[in-house]
Amino acid sequence: MAVATSPVRKKVNRIGLESREYRGSKTTLCAGCGHNAISERIIGACFEMGIEPERVVKLSGIGCSSKSPAYFLGSAHGFNAVHGRMPSVGTGAMLANRNLVAIGVSGDGDTGAIGIGQFVHLMRRNLPIIYIIEDNGCYGLTKGQFSPTADLGSKAKTGVVNDLPPIDTCALAIELGASFVARSFSGDKKQLTAILKAALSHRGTAMLDVLSPCVTFNDHEGSTKSYAYAKAHDDPLEEIDFVPFFEDISIDYEPGTTQEVVMHDGSKLYLKKLDADYDPLNKVQAMRVLQETRSRGEFATGLIYVEPVKPDFLDVLNVVDEPLATLPQERVRPPKTVLDDIMESLR
């Protein structure tokens, strides 16, 4: 008996695109590099959220992490800028066109060392941008030197011991005014995807520190940024589920253990708490948890802090709704009467 089969229909998202349309060129990073897993999660999150690739700008600085924007969303514009300076380029781009979706990818050296100045001021401005630190605690592209997020006492492949304490980029971002701060692990597919989707719904600076072991230079015993160490010391604050505004809410967490966070666009974040009294809307508590987990040699992961509705930099600057870049001449060149009046005032 012949069985009638319908043609195989590829899964498309809400704007009719297939997942492969969110892919980029083939990665040139090392096999097993955590950064590749993060690229996959970005592809997945953008697909699931139905982000229009042509509205996305991918931004980066210099380093292994900064190469990765080439490996996702190939049909989006990208700008691989100079070392540590992605924040300023991203700021300019968003000022030029506020309708863009900015995804910045940086590394721990690119952010914590050469780029710390620009990082600090980006966080202060609450520019609408997703700022991902692919954090492996070392400089991969120059063969494994320590970065400022390397833990005190961690040992490099060469045997050198790091004798300076690390910068906690999450604590720094919260302190400086970022309105969405999360930490995750490149190997945690479920959590990272949920965080990325929530970040895509957030309006303001979403800072994501993603531990991403360097398989070549920093994945050995003695490294606190190795796969083994990260898996053993990951201390999730909550299980995250994210429901975009355009989907029916059908999630059902037990009351009393779940916190619902409504994002600015109406999307909802559900945080099933592993730590009974953790509240990501509480800045003081967020800082306390970061301190406590760090003192135990652990990484608190999940959504650490969120301020769902906070004016972003473009609101603060009171910029028109349309992209500045494409305003027509009659809106950017004042009429002759204006120039004549100015001239008159100078006589």
Binding site: A81, R85, P87, S88, G92, A96, Q118, V120, H121, A325
Partner: peptide, 21 residues
């Protein structure tokens, strides 16, 4: 924008110029 330094100032101008402003 009053930038954090001249590096960022030109960085912003370059980012904006790239994005068409």
């Amino acid at each position: 924008v009053q930038a954090e330094d001249e590096i960022a100032a030109l960085g912003m101008a370059v980012g904006a110029g790239w994005a068409g402003a």
